[in-house]
Design a protein around this nucleic acid. Structure first.
Lengths: 156, 156
DNA sequence: CCTCGATCATTCGCCTACGAACAGTCTTGT
DNA sequence: ACAAGACTGTTCGTAGGCGAATGATCGAGG
């Protein structure tokens, strides 16, 4: 039942029964990945007019709530790592939705600020945000939707 | 209350109250994205020895279950679009886990087949699959975990 | 038989994601 | 005052994700 696993064999005890009964489409990781694809597609459909991605949107909501905030800090708050955040900030800046400024007290920081256009856009988007959520949760009853949100939040 | 929205103003009725009360971190889309990041990290930790990504793993499980299958078909079954599937197949082929062959009946198809090494790897990985799921659902009770899986599957 | 529409694989461009390495800059402890 | 360690942003490489376009091939209908 158990392999002799010699020096290079990458075979650390294979459970044949587990192998036989494994189904990817029932695993939580796979289901989350599919749900993520679907949620992104819905966001894209509802927010099409703005040409702003879900991550760009999350960053902008934070800047809207907090005012000028350093790049790494805002990334930390919305779950975007520094390397990714760099590109996100660059694209938002290029599009004129955000303006980078230097912090006077700390020369390392790049503060991000919403431009006037950025504020226009984020307010319009926030005001449509409920529709994205509603459409994403549409297959579930209100109770089920609330339960799903509660449970998935606890995974964090 | 409603803007006059001239020809270029991207301001289609902004609901000020909705704007004020919107919180990204409570939206299902945001929560799914965070959960996806966490689930991927756990997969990477548990499956580190194999250097196979979650998507590569999903593709390989399907090939293991079905035998030689065309690229697009496999992608369809695990939710990977043709453009992405192309890169996934190339990387699996380069690593020697999969071998591409031509279909005799249909010249368009590229059939993917697990190599002997690919079979070794996927069986070892399937046998550790339960650990990924367990760790991902660890913050929840068994009942809650089952409920989460049930609900998120219904989003598909 | 032959054309038209569907399907397959490929390519390009843009975006998110993250490990790893790096150079400035700041802070802390000695 | 200064060296050590921490933090910030940047860059590189690899990987998924997808819209859009393309060329090759297939299948169905006329």
């Amino acid at each position: 039942m158990n392999a002799p696993h010699r020096h290079e064999a990458p075979t650390p005890e294979i459970d044949a029964e587990a192998v036989r009964t494994y189904r990817v489409e029932e695993q939580i990781g796979y289901l989350i990945r599919r749900a993520h694809q679907r949620a992104s597609a819905i966001f894209e459909t509802v927010m099409r007019d703005f040409s702003v991605t879900p991550v760009q949107f999350a960053v902008m909501t934070k800047l809207h709530d907090l005012g000028p905030t350093s790049q790494n800090q805002v990334g930390r708050l919305v779950g975007v790592d520094p390397a990714t955040m760099f590109g996100v900030a660059r694209r938002l800046t290029t599009r004129g939705l955000v303006r980078p400024t230097a912090d006077e007290a700390d020369a390392r920081l790049v503060l991000l600020t919403l431009t006037a256009e950025g504020i226009q856009v984020i307010e319009a988007m926030k005001s449509r945000g409920a529709e994205v959520t509603a459409r994403t949760l549409e297959p579930l009853s209100p109770d089920e939707a609330a339960e799903l949100v509660r449970l998935i939040a606890r995974l964090g």
